[in-house]
Design a protein around this nucleic acid. Structure first.
Lengths: 143, 143
DNA sequence: GCTTGCCTTAAAGTGTGCTTTAAGCCTTAA
DNA sequence: TTAAGGCTTAAAGCACACTTTAAGGCAAGC
């Protein structure tokens, strides 16, 4: 069972142009063609594209994906190197988790401050942007 | 107490050029200058830059930061709009958390498969890239 | 006085990852 | 048979966020 690029695109929710781009970048070796030169994708390819999309969405660079493809093409002997790459990437994922947690903290903090200002429990000049805003108000009043 | 751009840069771990870029983009209103035209940063500015850096690291667009600055400059009446922006951003953070969790799952899965292949408990053609690799091997053997 | 070094600005350049365009071929339906 | 619509390619274009370059000013130390 193989799929046209349109079918692949639909199943993956990924533009056909992007899939072609990935193939051109060497991320999709061994895509067969029909007698008209149209690409024929196997289920493996769809799985691999899905995995790449997942990794891409979380910051893996295309150059790193390409390295992994190239290593895979060189056989099982490169598995240690592929593991090393994935472990580094995993570290990156942990760092991003921390960044997200920090940002979530910061945004909740900011939202809480806005609520307090809205309820009159905090003067508007309390923090950060609000200070600038206040300075702006003072300035315009002086004019 | 105010800081030169160099001090700000050192304290924030952020290139001076980037800080100037942010000011040019309108993200840092009301930066004063000394008699030579050199920027003088207040603690508020450093705090705000730090917050922006945190938001930027987790995918907030500069255009959105700018919107927030512009709203803040328009006073407390815009707090509901700022809250709306932050709440949307918060949704985005949650989506990213899910993406990270999925990627972490996928990478652990892949690592587990590599270990099994290394230990001989799985043939190398088992999944995804390994299949391509296998196809490659067959092909080269046929030649 | 002159060099060093940091500051200023505006503008051009870079890296990444698509996305769009242009030109053309093949198949199918009217 | 001809127009529509999908496929192909190579190449150009775009969005984003810096980053680098170029040209020059000011101040302190030798």
């Amino acid at each position: 069972m193989s799929f046209t690029i349109k079918e692949a695109s639909e199943r993956l929710g990924c533009p056909a142009h992007t899939i072609r781009f990935y193939e051109k970048e060497g991320l999709l070796p061994y895509i067969k063609r029909d007698r008209h030169g149209n690409r024929l994708f196997e289920q493996d390819h769809l799985d691999w594209i899905r995995l790449m999309t997942c990794f891409r969405a979380t910051g893996m660079k295309i150059s790193l994906l390409k390295q992994m493809v190239n290593l895979a093409l060189d056989g099982d002997a490169t598995i240690p190197q592929r593991k090393a790459i994935l472990n580094q990437y995993k570290e990156q994922l942990f760092r991003r988790q921390n960044e997200l947690a920090e940002a979530l903290d910061a945004v909740n903090n900011k939202l809480a401050i806005y609520e307090e200002i809205e309820e009159g429990r905090l003067p508007s000049e309390s923090r950060l942007l609000n200070q600038m805003e206040d300075r702006h108000n003072q300035q315009t009043k002086r004019e």
